[in-house]
Nucleic acid binder design. Structure first.
Length: 486
DNA sequence: ATGTAC
């Protein structure tokens, strides 16, 4: 029977697929989105999110955020909380290959008017100083043993070694170092792939962007001010990258290991090999959890070094120190993780492993683990749109409990990379963007075509859906003026 | 996303 017959409208932005849809579903699936988003959704997402609903320990719902689209095993935009005291599993496909791919946002005290004459110079210099593209390596020279320290200490290692400011650490989830990362759980191959990649952007949808907060796009000036956006036309810097080849290798290593033991040792049957998993409370599950945390820390360190590099470049171009330029961080959010969190479910406190794959944590005001500065307003959420359109700064809200305090992470693709490459030419796109006032540098013209704005959902629709659903609140919309694309 | 196939 077609999926539409099963899809039940819960509200204007929440759609449910009951357990009767597919044998083995332990909980219903819920998809977030407006009627428009749902009508354009890739049908494969229904299949994937209902597969996720069959995994052991899944609590309440298998969910998909409004930017959701087809991914490896889980949809990208997938949220699944596993009860670790009830045989809950950990699944690499629910975290993503690019472990802790995420966004970081930094403000400046410069206005559009001041930056505009330098935009070309600024983007060109950033392009030189922040290595981008497939297989790129960074300027931080590390031995393999040093790198093992980095993946255990994350951004804290960077600040201790001169890359950044002490205050940066307070503005990263887990203060830039998730506890329990154990490099003994990492293969030599993963170390080999990662040790020279600190401070590199990567490729695909990874980018570094110079943006402007236009007056009419500051929706809540009080909240914006708390986050450092204090004036119209203020220039900010946002970037998106992850754990590069390192995280990819960690995911590959453990997917293979889980496939070997999942059924034979633990009797877990899954509907799709891409959902390979192991009980959280098993030697294999715990080993991956520790290894995945190394990926989380690698990614924090990567973004920390890039942040440092951006400060250096601005300082050079504007001939003032980064302090004088007010280059303070707003926040750093993780997209691809599984974290152990306490949540209240049906009135009871439970320990849940919350998988967020292409989804952002969005803690409400007053919750633990929010920096002091944001305690009263909620956790900042940084949403990167496609490079042509715009991005958003949001905050978490109390009604976010329905998604274990998770929201969207980006626009969400509507078109495959292959299709996008056929539909557009990178060179034309580059010129069109230039006309719109966005100066772009990219390592790859075909890569640029893959990231065309038209290959993505409308970011404004996605944010609107997230706000209407009560899973995050918008604060500022940010417009790009310069972009370095990996 | 990714030394875009070990």
């Amino acid at each position: 029977m077609p999926i539409k017959e099963f899809l039940e409208k819960i509200s204007d932005t929440v759609w449910e697929i009951p357990v009767s849809y597919k044998e083995g579903m332990r909980v219903p699936a819920r998809i977030y989105g407006t009627e428009k988003i749902i009508s354009e959704l890739d049908e494969a997402v229904y299949d994937q999110v209902t597969n996720v609903a069959t995994l052991p320990g899944i609590t309440k719902y298998a969910m998909c955020m409004p930017d959701g689209h087809f991914g490896y095993g889980f949809p990208i935009g997938g949220v699944a909380a596993m009860d670790v005291e009830k045989g809950g599993v950990i699944s690499p496909g629910g975290i993503g290959f690019d472990i802790n791919c995420g966004m970081r946002l930094m403000v400046t005290n410069l206005t559009y008017h001041e930056v505009k004459p330098y935009i070309k110079k600024l983007v060109d210099r950033l392009y030189e100083r922040v290595p981008a593209g497939v297989g790129s390596s960074g300027f931080v020279k590390l031995s393999r043993n040093d790198f093992r320290q980095v993946v255990e200490q994350g951004a804290q290692w960077c600040v201790n070694n001169g890359y950044g400011w002490e205050e940066d650490l307070e503005l990263i989830e887990e203060n830039g170092c998730i506890k329990g990362a154990d490099s003994a759980k990492i293969s030599d191959k993963a170390i080999d792939r990662g040790f020279n990649q600190i401070g590199t952007l990567g490729s695909g949808n990874h980018y570094l962007e110079i943006q402007v907060a236009r007056k009419l796009d500051i929706f809540d000036p009080e909240l914006a001010k708390t986050m450092g956006i204090t004036m119209p036309d203020q220039v900010v810097v946002m970037f998106h990258c992850g754990s590069r080849g390192f995280g990819h290798q960690v995911a590959t290593d453990y997917l293979q290991r889980f496939l070997k033991v999942m059924d034979s040792k633990y009797g877990i049957k899954i509907l799709d090999r891409e959902l390979a998993c192991a009980p959280f409370d098993s030697p294999e599950g715990q080993a991956y959890f520790s290894a995945m945390k190394c990926g989380i820390n690698m990614s924090y360190a990567n973004r920390q070094v890039i942040l440092h590099r951006i400060r250096e470049v601005f300082s050079e171009i504007f001939e003032r120190s980064a302090e004088d330029l007010g280059m303070h961080m707003v926040y750093d959010v993780a997209h691809n993780t599984a974290k152990l969190e306490n949540h209240v479910v049906d009135g009871k406190k439970r320990s849940l492993l919350v998988h967020r794959k292409g989804a952002t944590r969005a803690f409400a005001p007053g919750m633990a683990d929010i920096p002091e500065r944001y305690k009263n307003i909620g956790q900042p959420v940084i949403i990167g749109g496609s490079m042509e359109t715009g991005s958003y700064l949001l905050v978490g809200v109390p009604t976010g409990d329905q998604t274990f305090f998770s929201t969207a992470h980006g626009s969400g693709r509507t078109m495959s990379r292959t299709k996008a490459r056929k539909a557009w030419k990178g060179e034309t796109l580059l010129k069109d963007m230039q006309k719109k006032g966005i100066y772009v540098r990219s390592t790859s013209m075909s890569g640029l075509a893959e990231e065309a704005g038209a290959a993505y959902k409308d970011i404004d629709d996605v944010i609107e859906a997230a706000e209407l659903a009560g899973i995050s609140k918008k604060v500022v919309r940010l417009t790009p003026i310069g972009n370095i694309k990996g």
